[in-house]
Amino acid sequence: MMRRGILAALSAAVIGLGVGASVSAAEFEAPPLQDWSFSGIFGAYEKASLQRGFQVYREVCAGCHSMKLVAYRNLSALGYSEKEVKAFAAEAEVTDGPNDDGEMFPRPGLPSDRFVPPFANDQAARAANNGAFPPDLSVLTKARYRRMGWEGSDYIYAVLTGYHDEPPADFQEKYREEQKKKNKDREEKDKKEIKDFQVAEGMNFNLYFPGYQIAMPPPLADDGVEFADGTKATVKQMAKDVTTFLAWAAEPEMEERKRLGIKVILFLLVLTGLLFALKRKIWADLH
């Protein structure tokens, strides 16, 4: 009785978590799951992809998006030499000071500096982007994770590749169906007219962004960057690489964490096995 009850309870709990997480205010398509090199218990970041992804961030995203939590010195984890890291840091201009005269002064960035943000403050970022705020990308993959759904990286990849000039016809059909379904639950006076999805002024259609539209114009175009390693810079390739880079930025400890986790769990399995044998031996004389 107890055992059966628990199974029922457990499955109910799992379903509860899943369904609970799938509720959202604005509608969007669930991002398709990708096959990431860094998912799974043995997952690791692919160094070449990280470097390409950093290049995409540096040449495309960094114009608007900050990554305030990441320091230039962290880039050595991408496989860059100390000299290369120093060079990347030096490209940025950091305001330091005050000096002995009490003046603030600009200097080239050092590896110990955090990524210098593109705008002085949030207001400046909004002002330059039509009122929309380009979010900080440091932990974006963690912030867009959906329990029992997708990884943050799946979502980011989907948004980067989910642009359409016009809402596709099959989308419009589905959109109308959704509206009809909603109307069914509504009171007579609250019923809304069924019409096609209209992209608002200054917005861009994106299948995977909540509300189906996003202020960010399509950031990636084929051959938008020229990869140092000769990889062809298709939109999908760039999206995959920059997402890998963002996943690393959000969870730089991931590889170490998983490696340690495997050791810890192997140790615990052996220990628990020994404890199990000991338990049986000690309890044997009681029966």
């Binding site: 369904v19 997480a21 509720v23």
Partner: peptide
Amino acid sequence: LVLGWVGAN
């Protein structure tokens, strides 16, 4: 458990 599920929605 049902209450827990409801609470998440």
